[in-house]
Design a protein around this nucleic acid. Structure first.
Lengths: 145, 145
DNA sequence: ATTGACCCTCACACAAGTGTGAAGGTCTCA
DNA sequence: TGAGACCTTCACACTTGTGTGAGGGTCAAT
């Protein structure tokens, strides 16, 4: 199957991903997406770019810089298939390093999220009563940077 | 127990947390830490600030801006005890909102981390063989922003 | 042929997090 | 009393991700 060729210009991609045109161009400039160009200079995106952009946004929001996202994206190809032939040793090292960092981030976020969840639960339990005194609840602890 | 009063100046805290003095002052300016001052103008930090700073760094690295960290830190007090009396409704709303965002971040990071882990595993399995052709492996999908 | 809705590039601007350094105060030790 | 190692504030500067707008093409519909 040669795939459906549902193409679009920057405006549509912008609307479908909730991302400003400016940012789509920026991501391109950073090498995160590579739309083709139509006869007139217009950028031409295909369906796969929708997920791609969502992925980029998610990673950016999680604190990864474009520089890193650019490096890990090739391992996360659209048809959910890995094509590796271009796996240099440095590349793999970077990947392992980032894997670790991501795991740390996840731990830190989880710990703090759980702490907040507990806090909210405690406050809600306490609702109605006047809480003018100190109450107790166990809270998480930071991650080692 | 009135707690051990192991105090220190900015230089020591900097070394113990691996954070530049500049940043410690910046975090203070942003209201994330509030050292007291000695008779001379020197900042005076106590032991609890070590964990505090680690926590701040972790959250920052996870993509949370100081503005948000400032809001959630009060719920994450040092003796791992929650003192709530200052829980305004807006505050709780913000907290719930951020809780959601953190959960999304965690999902996105986890998904992508797992994808990278699988990629690495696949590459390693393949090690030695000449991989000049496309190989296959299932990969994760982005998070909805 | 003009209008309107697209697209293009370029560039200035801004907030956040961080580095760096100047100009100067404090304290300890020889 | 001077040197050295701290500390202070202030300020300029860089990078990243983002907004905004100027100046200008393309294209379809009227």
């Amino acid at each position: 199957m040669v795939g459906d060729s549902r193409h679009m210009r920057i405006g549509e991609l912008s609307e479908r991903t909730g991302t400003s045109r400016r940012l789509l161009r920026y991501y391109e400039e950073q090498g995160l997406i590579a739309p083709t160009r139509s006869a007139n200079g217009y950028r031409d995106y295909d369906e796969a770019n929708v997920d791609r952009v969502a992925q980029i946004r998610g990673l950016l929001d999680s604190g990864l810089p474009t520089r890193i996202i650019k490096q890990i994206l090739p391992c996360l190809n659209q048809p959910r298939v890995i094509h590796f032939s271009d796996a240099t040793p440095e590349m793999l090292a970077t990947l392992e390093f980032e894997l670790d960092r991501m795991t740390q981030r996840i731990r830190c976020l989880t710990r703090n999220r759980d702490a907040i969840a507990e806090y909210l639960a405690a406050v809600r339990t306490d609702e109605g009563r006047e809480a003018d005194d100190g109450h107790e609840a166990v809270v998480g602890v930071p991650a080692r940077a």
